Computed example of a mutant assay.
Amino acid sequence: MSRTIAFAFPGDLALNTGGYAYDRRVTDGLRNCGWDVQCLPLGDGFPNPSPEAKARAEDLLSRLPDGAQVVVDGLAFGVLDTWAERESKRLRIVALVHHPLALETGLDAEQQQDLAASERQALAWAEHVIVTSPMTARELTSSYNVPSEKITVAIPGTGPGTPARCEGEPPHIVSIGTLIPRKGHDVLIAALKRIEHLSWTATIVGSHNLSPRTAREIEEQLAESGLAERVSLAGEVADVRPILASADIFALASRFEGYGMVFAEALSHGLPIVACRTGAVPDVVPEEAGILTGVDDIDAFAAALGSLVTDRGMRRRKAEAARHAGALLPNWNRTVGIIADRLETLP
Protein backbone atom coordinates (compact mmCIF):
# COMPACT_ATOMS: atom_id res chain seq x y z
CA MET A 1 0.00 0.00 0.00
CA SER A 2 1.31 3.44 -0.97
CA ARG A 3 2.07 5.81 1.89
CA THR A 4 1.38 8.89 -0.24
CA ILE A 5 -1.52 11.17 0.52
CA ALA A 6 -2.86 14.62 -0.36
CA PHE A 7 -4.27 16.68 2.52
CA ALA A 8 -6.66 19.45 1.45
CA PHE A 9 -7.72 22.27 3.74
CA PRO A 10 -9.45 25.65 3.42
CA GLY A 11 -8.02 28.94 4.65
CA ASP A 12 -4.72 29.29 6.50
CA LEU A 13 -3.27 26.16 8.10
CA ALA A 14 -1.24 28.36 10.48
CA LEU A 15 -4.35 29.75 12.22
CA ASN A 16 -4.51 29.10 15.96
CA THR A 17 -7.80 27.23 16.13
CA GLY A 18 -8.40 23.72 17.37
CA GLY A 19 -9.32 22.46 13.91
CA TYR A 20 -6.23 23.82 12.23
CA ALA A 21 -4.01 22.68 15.11
CA TYR A 22 -5.41 19.17 14.60
CA ASP A 23 -4.69 19.33 10.86
CA ARG A 24 -1.12 20.51 11.49
CA ARG A 25 -0.44 17.78 14.04
CA VAL A 26 -1.82 15.09 11.75
CA THR A 27 0.09 16.17 8.65
CA ASP A 28 3.34 16.57 10.61
CA GLY A 29 2.78 13.26 12.37
CA LEU A 30 2.14 11.37 9.15
CA ARG A 31 5.36 12.77 7.70
CA ASN A 32 7.22 11.65 10.81
CA CYS A 33 5.79 8.17 10.24
CA GLY A 34 7.26 8.09 6.73
CA TRP A 35 4.26 9.29 4.73
CA ASP A 36 4.63 11.56 1.72
CA VAL A 37 2.06 14.28 2.48
CA GLN A 38 1.12 16.85 -0.17
CA CYS A 39 -0.73 19.82 1.37
CA LEU A 40 -3.38 21.41 -0.86
CA PRO A 41 -4.64 24.84 0.29
CA LEU A 42 -8.15 25.28 -1.09
CA GLY A 43 -8.50 29.02 -0.55
CA ASP A 44 -10.60 31.25 1.67
CA GLY A 45 -14.31 31.68 2.33
CA PHE A 46 -15.30 28.13 3.28
CA PRO A 47 -17.86 26.92 4.14
CA ASN A 48 -19.41 29.79 2.19
CA PRO A 49 -16.94 30.35 -0.66
CA SER A 50 -17.65 32.49 -3.66
CA PRO A 51 -18.50 30.54 -6.83
CA GLU A 52 -15.05 31.43 -8.17
CA ALA A 53 -13.25 30.25 -5.01
CA LYS A 54 -15.21 27.00 -5.00
CA ALA A 55 -14.43 26.37 -8.66
CA ARG A 56 -10.71 26.96 -8.03
CA ALA A 57 -10.74 24.51 -5.11
CA GLU A 58 -12.51 21.86 -7.17
CA ASP A 59 -10.08 22.35 -10.05
CA LEU A 60 -7.10 21.95 -7.71
CA LEU A 61 -8.50 18.72 -6.27
CA SER A 62 -9.40 17.37 -9.69
CA ARG A 63 -5.78 17.68 -10.81
CA LEU A 64 -4.89 14.77 -8.53
CA PRO A 65 -3.99 11.65 -10.52
CA ASP A 66 -6.24 8.62 -10.80
CA GLY A 67 -6.21 6.48 -7.67
CA ALA A 68 -4.80 9.22 -5.43
CA GLN A 69 -5.82 9.16 -1.78
CA VAL A 70 -6.93 12.58 -0.51
CA VAL A 71 -8.07 13.69 2.93
CA VAL A 72 -10.31 16.78 2.75
CA ASP A 73 -10.98 18.88 5.85
CA GLY A 74 -14.71 19.00 6.55
CA LEU A 75 -14.88 22.79 6.64
CA ALA A 76 -14.51 22.59 2.86
CA PHE A 77 -15.64 19.04 2.12
CA GLY A 78 -19.18 19.62 3.35
CA VAL A 79 -19.89 22.00 0.46
CA LEU A 80 -17.96 20.05 -2.20
CA ASP A 81 -20.77 17.55 -2.75
CA THR A 82 -20.93 17.86 -6.53
CA TRP A 83 -17.15 17.53 -6.80
CA ALA A 84 -17.18 14.47 -4.52
CA GLU A 85 -19.84 12.79 -6.64
CA ARG A 86 -17.96 13.55 -9.84
CA GLU A 87 -14.55 12.33 -8.60
CA SER A 88 -15.47 9.51 -6.22
CA LYS A 89 -14.91 6.76 -8.80
CA ARG A 90 -11.47 8.13 -9.69
CA LEU A 91 -10.06 9.28 -6.33
CA ARG A 92 -9.94 7.68 -2.87
CA ILE A 93 -11.66 10.41 -0.86
CA VAL A 94 -11.47 10.57 2.93
CA ALA A 95 -13.38 13.28 4.81
CA LEU A 96 -12.06 14.72 8.08
CA VAL A 97 -15.04 16.07 10.05
CA HIS A 98 -14.40 18.16 13.14
CA HIS A 99 -18.13 18.81 13.52
CA PRO A 100 -21.04 19.06 11.06
CA LEU A 101 -21.19 22.46 9.37
CA ALA A 102 -24.89 22.93 10.13
CA LEU A 103 -24.14 22.96 13.87
CA GLU A 104 -22.17 26.20 13.71
CA THR A 105 -23.71 29.00 15.78
CA GLY A 106 -25.37 31.94 14.02
CA LEU A 107 -26.92 30.15 11.05
CA ASP A 108 -30.57 30.64 10.14
CA ALA A 109 -32.84 27.68 9.42
CA GLU A 110 -32.34 27.86 5.66
CA GLN A 111 -28.55 27.96 5.98
CA GLN A 112 -28.63 25.00 8.37
CA GLN A 113 -30.77 22.98 5.97
CA ASP A 114 -28.60 23.81 2.97
CA LEU A 115 -25.35 22.91 4.76
CA ALA A 116 -26.79 19.70 6.21
CA ALA A 117 -28.04 18.63 2.78
CA SER A 118 -24.75 19.34 0.99
CA GLU A 119 -22.66 17.68 3.70
CA ARG A 120 -24.93 14.63 3.73
CA GLN A 121 -24.48 14.28 -0.02
CA ALA A 122 -20.72 14.84 0.13
CA LEU A 123 -20.27 12.23 2.86
CA ALA A 124 -22.19 9.69 0.82
CA TRP A 125 -19.39 9.82 -1.79
CA ALA A 126 -16.48 9.59 0.66
CA GLU A 127 -14.64 6.29 0.89
CA HIS A 128 -14.15 6.83 4.62
CA VAL A 129 -14.73 9.48 7.30
CA ILE A 130 -12.39 10.45 10.15
CA VAL A 131 -13.98 12.29 13.09
CA THR A 132 -12.48 13.85 16.19
CA SER A 133 -14.97 12.61 18.79
CA PRO A 134 -17.45 9.80 19.46
CA MET A 135 -20.17 12.47 19.61
CA THR A 136 -19.51 13.49 16.00
CA ALA A 137 -19.49 9.84 14.97
CA ARG A 138 -22.91 9.38 16.56
CA GLU A 139 -24.22 12.53 14.88
CA LEU A 140 -23.02 11.45 11.43
CA THR A 141 -24.58 8.01 11.85
CA SER A 142 -27.93 9.26 13.16
CA SER A 143 -28.41 12.43 11.09
CA TYR A 144 -26.15 12.10 8.04
CA ASN A 145 -26.69 8.44 7.07
CA VAL A 146 -23.01 7.53 7.42
CA PRO A 147 -22.63 3.83 8.37
CA SER A 148 -20.69 3.36 11.60
CA GLU A 149 -18.24 1.00 9.89
CA LYS A 150 -17.29 3.84 7.54
CA ILE A 151 -16.19 6.08 10.46
CA THR A 152 -12.91 6.17 12.41
CA VAL A 153 -12.71 8.18 15.63
CA ALA A 154 -9.32 9.82 16.21
CA ILE A 155 -9.56 11.97 19.33
CA PRO A 156 -7.12 14.91 19.35
CA GLY A 157 -3.91 14.33 21.22
CA THR A 158 -2.97 16.33 24.29
CA GLY A 159 0.52 17.03 25.56
CA PRO A 160 1.42 17.17 29.26
CA GLY A 161 0.92 20.58 30.87
CA THR A 162 2.65 22.31 33.76
CA PRO A 163 0.32 21.81 36.74
CA ALA A 164 -1.50 24.98 37.73
CA ARG A 165 -1.48 25.66 41.46
CA CYS A 166 -5.12 26.86 41.55
CA GLU A 167 -4.38 28.77 44.76
CA GLY A 168 -4.35 32.33 43.40
CA GLU A 169 -5.80 35.17 45.41
CA PRO A 170 -7.65 36.61 43.68
CA PRO A 171 -8.36 33.59 41.46
CA HIS A 172 -7.36 34.01 37.81
CA ILE A 173 -10.08 32.88 35.38
CA VAL A 174 -8.80 32.03 31.88
CA SER A 175 -10.86 31.51 28.73
CA ILE A 176 -9.37 30.47 25.38
CA GLY A 177 -11.31 30.49 22.14
CA THR A 178 -11.47 32.42 18.88
CA LEU A 179 -13.86 35.36 19.12
CA ILE A 180 -16.70 33.86 17.12
CA PRO A 181 -20.36 33.49 18.20
CA ARG A 182 -20.07 29.76 18.96
CA LYS A 183 -17.48 30.28 21.70
CA GLY A 184 -19.94 32.22 23.91
CA HIS A 185 -17.58 34.91 25.20
CA ASP A 186 -20.62 37.18 25.51
CA VAL A 187 -22.08 34.73 28.03
CA LEU A 188 -18.81 34.63 29.98
CA ILE A 189 -18.61 38.43 30.25
CA ALA A 190 -22.25 38.64 31.30
CA ALA A 191 -21.62 35.95 33.93
CA LEU A 192 -18.55 37.78 35.22
CA LYS A 193 -20.70 40.90 35.58
CA ARG A 194 -23.02 38.88 37.83
CA ILE A 195 -20.12 38.09 40.17
CA GLU A 196 -18.29 41.42 40.03
CA HIS A 197 -18.75 41.73 43.81
CA LEU A 198 -16.34 38.79 44.23
CA SER A 199 -12.56 38.97 44.00
CA TRP A 200 -11.16 37.60 40.70
CA THR A 201 -9.29 38.54 37.52
CA ALA A 202 -9.87 37.15 34.03
CA THR A 203 -8.07 36.76 30.71
CA ILE A 204 -9.77 35.95 27.40
CA VAL A 205 -7.40 34.60 24.74
CA GLY A 206 -8.48 34.31 21.12
CA SER A 207 -8.08 35.72 17.65
CA HIS A 208 -10.17 38.75 16.71
CA ASN A 209 -9.77 38.11 12.98
CA LEU A 210 -12.15 35.29 12.06
CA SER A 211 -15.26 37.26 13.00
CA PRO A 212 -14.41 40.96 13.31
CA ARG A 213 -18.05 41.78 14.02
CA THR A 214 -18.10 39.42 17.02
CA ALA A 215 -14.79 40.84 18.23
CA ARG A 216 -16.20 44.38 18.10
CA GLU A 217 -19.31 43.28 19.97
CA ILE A 218 -17.22 41.62 22.69
CA GLU A 219 -15.04 44.72 23.05
CA GLU A 220 -18.14 46.93 23.31
CA GLN A 221 -19.80 44.60 25.82
CA LEU A 222 -16.69 44.59 27.98
CA ALA A 223 -16.42 48.39 27.89
CA GLU A 224 -20.08 48.80 28.82
CA SER A 225 -19.81 46.22 31.62
CA GLY A 226 -17.33 48.27 33.61
CA LEU A 227 -15.07 45.21 33.90
CA ALA A 228 -12.36 46.32 31.47
CA GLU A 229 -9.80 46.75 34.25
CA ARG A 230 -10.41 43.19 35.50
CA VAL A 231 -10.85 41.33 32.19
CA SER A 232 -7.99 41.30 29.68
CA LEU A 233 -8.67 40.63 26.00
CA ALA A 234 -5.29 39.13 25.14
CA GLY A 235 -5.93 38.44 21.44
CA GLU A 236 -4.25 35.54 19.70
CA VAL A 237 -1.40 33.86 21.61
CA ALA A 238 1.03 31.49 19.93
CA ASP A 239 1.57 29.32 23.03
CA VAL A 240 -1.26 29.20 25.55
CA ARG A 241 0.50 26.86 27.98
CA PRO A 242 2.04 29.59 30.17
CA ILE A 243 -1.36 31.27 30.48
CA LEU A 244 -3.04 27.99 31.43
CA ALA A 245 -0.31 27.31 33.97
CA SER A 246 -1.00 30.72 35.53
CA ALA A 247 -4.74 30.12 35.80
CA ASP A 248 -6.85 28.96 38.72
CA ILE A 249 -10.08 28.31 36.78
CA PHE A 250 -10.76 27.63 33.10
CA ALA A 251 -14.07 28.88 31.71
CA LEU A 252 -15.51 28.73 28.19
CA ALA A 253 -19.23 29.06 27.45
CA SER A 254 -19.19 27.36 24.01
CA ARG A 255 -22.58 26.86 22.42
CA PHE A 256 -21.27 23.74 20.68
CA GLU A 257 -18.01 21.78 20.43
CA GLY A 258 -17.21 18.88 18.13
CA TYR A 259 -14.51 17.94 20.64
CA GLY A 260 -13.03 20.95 22.42
CA MET A 261 -9.24 20.57 22.38
CA VAL A 262 -8.84 23.51 24.74
CA PHE A 263 -10.81 21.69 27.44
CA ALA A 264 -8.42 18.77 27.16
CA GLU A 265 -5.49 21.21 27.44
CA ALA A 266 -7.04 22.73 30.55
CA LEU A 267 -7.36 19.25 32.08
CA SER A 268 -3.72 18.55 31.29
CA HIS A 269 -2.83 21.57 33.44
CA GLY A 270 -5.12 20.39 36.23
CA LEU A 271 -7.61 23.24 35.96
CA PRO A 272 -11.18 23.07 37.26
CA ILE A 273 -13.50 23.88 34.37
CA VAL A 274 -16.75 25.77 33.90
CA ALA A 275 -18.39 25.00 30.54
CA CYS A 276 -21.72 24.23 28.88
CA ARG A 277 -23.30 20.82 28.50
CA THR A 278 -23.25 20.69 24.70
CA GLY A 279 -21.75 18.64 21.89
CA ALA A 280 -18.73 16.63 22.99
CA VAL A 281 -17.97 18.75 26.06
CA PRO A 282 -19.49 16.24 28.54
CA ASP A 283 -17.36 13.50 26.95
CA VAL A 284 -14.18 15.53 27.49
CA VAL A 285 -14.83 17.16 30.88
CA PRO A 286 -15.60 14.67 33.67
CA GLU A 287 -18.28 15.76 36.12
CA GLU A 288 -15.84 15.62 39.01
CA ALA A 289 -13.41 17.96 37.21
CA GLY A 290 -15.79 20.77 36.36
CA ILE A 291 -19.23 22.29 36.41
CA LEU A 292 -21.36 22.10 33.26
CA THR A 293 -24.37 24.37 32.76
CA GLY A 294 -27.00 24.79 30.10
CA VAL A 295 -26.12 26.68 26.93
CA ASP A 296 -26.70 30.45 27.23
CA ASP A 297 -27.68 30.12 30.91
CA ILE A 298 -25.89 33.19 32.23
CA ASP A 299 -27.16 32.82 35.79
CA ALA A 300 -26.04 29.20 36.06
CA PHE A 301 -22.66 30.00 34.50
CA ALA A 302 -22.19 32.85 36.95
CA ALA A 303 -23.16 30.63 39.88
CA ALA A 304 -20.67 27.98 38.78
CA LEU A 305 -17.88 30.53 38.48
CA GLY A 306 -18.80 32.04 41.82
CA SER A 307 -18.68 28.70 43.59
CA LEU A 308 -15.15 27.98 42.32
CA VAL A 309 -13.99 31.52 43.11
CA THR A 310 -15.22 31.41 46.69
CA ASP A 311 -14.86 27.74 47.65
CA ARG A 312 -11.15 26.87 47.67
CA GLY A 313 -11.89 23.32 48.82
CA MET A 314 -14.09 22.68 45.79
CA ARG A 315 -11.46 24.25 43.57
CA ARG A 316 -8.79 21.91 44.96
CA ARG A 317 -10.97 18.80 44.58
CA LYS A 318 -11.91 19.58 41.00
CA ALA A 319 -8.32 20.52 40.17
CA GLU A 320 -7.15 17.13 41.42
CA ALA A 321 -9.82 15.37 39.35
CA ALA A 322 -8.79 17.44 36.33
CA ARG A 323 -5.13 16.41 36.75
CA HIS A 324 -6.17 12.76 36.91
CA ALA A 325 -8.36 13.08 33.80
CA GLY A 326 -5.65 14.99 31.95
CA ALA A 327 -3.11 12.25 32.61
CA LEU A 328 -5.38 9.72 30.87
CA LEU A 329 -5.79 11.68 27.63
CA PRO A 330 -4.21 10.22 24.46
CA ASN A 331 -1.09 11.84 23.02
CA TRP A 332 -0.63 12.90 19.40
CA ASN A 333 1.35 9.77 18.52
CA ARG A 334 -1.72 7.74 19.37
CA THR A 335 -4.01 10.01 17.32
CA VAL A 336 -1.75 9.96 14.27
CA GLY A 337 -1.27 6.20 14.62
CA ILE A 338 -5.03 5.61 14.47
CA ILE A 339 -5.32 7.69 11.31
CA ALA A 340 -2.25 6.18 9.65
CA ASP A 341 -3.44 2.64 10.37
CA ARG A 342 -6.85 3.36 8.89
CA LEU A 343 -5.47 5.05 5.78
CA GLU A 344 -3.15 2.10 5.17
CA THR A 345 -5.88 -0.50 5.49
CA LEU A 346 -8.51 1.16 3.31
CA PRO A 347 -9.08 -0.88 0.14
Rank of each mutant, 00 (worst) to 15 (best):
V336D: 09
G270F: 05
V281T: 11
R138E: 15
H269D: 02
G43Q: 00
E196C: 14
A303F: 13
G168R: 14
I195P: 09
L308Y: 00
T82F: 00
D311I: 04
A264D: 03
S2D: 15
A264R: 01
D108G: 05
V262G: 05
S143P: 01
G226P: 00
A95T: 01
I5V: 13
K150Q: 11
N32Q: 15
K318E: 09
R230M: 13
L198V: 07
E110I: 14
A234I: 12
K54E: 08
G226Q: 04
H128T: 01
R277W: 01
A68G: 07
H269I: 02
H99Q: 13
L192Q: 10
W200L: 13
L107E: 07
E344G: 06
N48R: 14
A137M: 10
D248C: 05
R342V: 08
D283L: 14
G45C: 05
T203V: 13
S50L: 10
L13F: 07
K183E: 03
L198E: 13
H208R: 15
E257K: 04
T203M: 13
L80N: 02
G157M: 10
L103H: 04
D239H: 03
Q221D: 13
N16R: 15
D283Q: 12
G78R: 10
G184W: 05
L233I: 06
H99P: 11
E127I: 09
S142N: 14
V187C: 04
G161D: 11
H172I: 09
A137G: 06
S88F: 05
V71L: 06
P347V: 06
G294P: 01
S268T: 07
L346R: 07
E169H: 15
A319W: 00
T178R: 13
A321F: 05
